[in-house]
Structures are given as C-alpha cells and as structure tokens.
C-alpha cells in the first residue's frame, strides 16, 4: 500500500521557545502586521452559540507548559468546513500556562457512508521540546465518541476519556492535555 513519492516531505523541527515572534508577534511586542491570525475562529459569535474552552498542557513532570502554541480547526454549526473561518491560534500564558478559546460548538459531519461522525475540534500543538507537532481532538460527547467506528475496534476505549473536556453547563469547557503519565492524552497521526 505504500506509494513511493517523488520527493520527501520536509522534516519538521521544533518551533522553539520564541515562536511568538513569528506566530503571535504582538505578544512579543512586535506590532508590524496588519492583522492577527486566528484571533477568533468565527466572526460575530452570538451569545447563545458561544462556548468557552480553557485548559493547560502538562509535561511529563506535570508542570503546565508556558511556551506552547495551540491552533484549532473546526467546522461550523452545520458540520461544514470553510477555508475562511474555523481557525484559531493561541499561545499558553507565560506564567500560568493557560489557554482560552471562545468559539461555537461544531456540528456533526455526515460521512461518506451516510453515518454521522462525532462533533470535535482539532488541536494542533507545538512548543520547545516538540520536534513534531502533537495533534489531538476535543470531542463533545463521550457516547458519540465511543460509538465511532473509527475507535470501536482499537484497544483504547479506556483512554478515550482523555479526549472529552470537563463541563458543567455545556457552555464552559476545561480541556487539559497531558503529554505523559496515567492521564496521557490520545494523540493522532494520519
């Protein structure tokens, strides 16, 4: 099944501790660009649609990572992806390591086979010490996730809960990411 490609894709390298200069320059005190990329995933989010996600990324010593960047990518409320919206970019706080995203809950997608796939937001994470990005997903509904055929036959049912955020009101979500240990988040590769 391996297709031989003509060219090797360029290797990844760490984004390093100073990624803010290039990716979120205003946080490094550099204000020369016209706009800030990924400041909000959707324009004009209405109050009744708004959800808030926050969390931290914990390293193997269980310390929050204070120099990471998270990019999120999601569909709209109808499950459709558009190249002009759905993207956000955040860095974790220099002191606390916390990130915060205001967005809307993505809709469910109808897959090619007609089945409905669960609602989730893609998280793409880089930082010093990460030679390659880490990709995970925040799912909204544990039952939806557990019944997804993609995961059903994999021996990871006990770890699937690492992809579910904590919420009390379905408006505010806490999604912590653990790089190692008992709570290690599931990361994906494609």
């Amino acid at each position: 099944m391996v297709k031989i490609q003509k060219f090797t894709d360029t290797p990844s390298q760490t984004a390093g501790p100073f990624l803010h200069i290039g990716c979120t320059p205003s946080i490094a005190g550099i204000n020369i660009f016209k706009d800030v990329l990924g400041s909000t995933p959707f324009k004009n989010i209405s109050l009744n649609e708004e959800i808030n996600i926050k969390g931290k990324i914990y390293d193997g010593n269980n310390n929050p990572i204070t120099d990471a960047m998270i990019e999120t990518w999601q569909c709209d409320k109808n499950g459709k992806y558009f190249n002009y919206q759905g993207f956000s970019r955040r860095v974790t706080d220099f002191k606390t390591g916390e990130y915060q995203i205001k967005t809307i809950r993505p809709g469910n997608q109808i897959k090619e086979d007609g089945k409905i796939s669960p609602s989730y937001i893609l998280f793409w994470i880089v930082a010093r010490g990460m030679n390659r990005p880490l990709i995970t997903r925040m799912y909204f509904d544990e039952n939806e996730l557990k019944s997804d055929v993609m995961f059903k036959n994999l021996n990871i049912q006990d770890r699937l809960k690492t992809l579910i955020p904590y919420t009390e009101d379905k408006k505010h979500f806490v999604f912590d990411i653990h790089l190692q240990g008992k709570k290690e988040t599931i990361f994906f590769e494609f």
Binding site: C75, Y81, G129, L179, Q180, F188
Partner: peptide, 26 residues
C-alpha cells in the same frame, strides 16, 4: 535534546484515517 524527554508522549500517536478536518484548512 533534553526538553523532548518530558515534552513527548510515551505512547505512539494513534494512526487513523484522516477526516474532513485534516483535508481542509484555513
């Protein structure tokens, strides 16, 4: 590269088929 020791998962990432979220982008 020392900081990679505590900043990389212990489990290999899970290989899955990509979905619409991977074949679209901003």
């Amino acid at each position: 590269y020392k900081s990679s020791i505590i900043r990389s998962p212990d489990n290999e990432p899970l290989l899955i088929n990509f979905s619409n979220s991977e074949i679209t982008g901003p």
